[in-house]
């Protein structure tokens, strides 16, 4: 669908997509993307519906904390959707720990919404598992493997060797519009007084 819309910006002779092939995005990248958007959604919900959330969990009075967690979730989401998705997903794992610890405080016997807290805990644990899988996956997929890199010691680029190459293009005339003004070399080999005299 998006192609049909973006094709409006193309001319008649421009190539248009007929069939889509394999992507540079791996499965874990897509998982990171999904979790990033989940974070954004949850963050917005925590910000705009903090009262309803605390009421549902029997945690009245903790609205400010829920909103702060909402801001935190937005941060996780933005990072998970960025090229630094490893950082985003690992920050989500840390955030999950915080969420679990906070929910545990609401698992009191005198909390009439204890069942809701249990459901929330189960959801968070499930998401934590996904976060750990995603974080490990993207770290493995996008990290530079340890060990010795390939050697490029002989990649001089100069068929006649580096020494022969030094200054080999001295015949090149720098165009007037690309000269440095004033030319450092042109003035630095003589003292200012000498230059004045020479005029």
């Amino acid at each position: 669908m998006t192609y049909y819309i973006s094709n409006i910006a193309r001319s008649k002779g421009d190539p248009k997509v007929i069939h889509s092939g394999p992507s540079s995005l791996g499965t874990v990248d897509r998982l990171a993307k999904a979790l990033g958007w989940y974070s954004i959604g949850l963050g917005i919900a925590e910000l705009v519906a903090a009262e309803r959330i605390t009421r549902a969990l029997g945690m009245e009075g903790k609205e400010a904390l829920v909103r702060a967690y909402g801001v935190r979730e937005l941060g996780h989401g933005i990072m998970s959707l960025s090229p630094d998705k490893q950082l985003g997903l690992w920050s989500r794992v840390a955030g999950d720990g915080l969420d679990i610890a906070t929910l545990m405080t609401a698992m009191r016997h005198d909390n009439p919404k204890r069942d809701n807290v249990g459901i929330a805990l189960a959801v968070v644990l499930g998401v934590t598992l996904l976060d750990i899988i995603g974080a490990q996956g993207v770290t493995a997929r996008h990290s530079r493997p340890r060990g010795r890199p390939r050697s490029y010691r002989n990649r001089t680029g100069f068929p006649q060797g580096v020494q022969a190459a030094r200054g080999a293009a001295k015949d090149f005339q720098v165009p007037p519009d690309m000269r440095a003004a004033p030319s450092l070399a042109a003035v630095s080999d003589r003292a200012p007084q000498e230059r004045v005299r020479s005029h």
């Binding site: 001319s11 008649k12 190539p15 889509s20 394999p22």
Partner: peptide
């Protein structure tokens, strides 16, 4: 023909696309 096509952030695909045509 085949071409590397941008589909979004970090999403490049090797797609089948229509051939380019002379326009001008």
């Amino acid at each position: 023909m085949r071409a590397l096509v941008w589909h979004g952030k970090e999403d490049i695909r090797c797609d089948t696309v229509t051939d380019p045509e002379i326009e001008q």
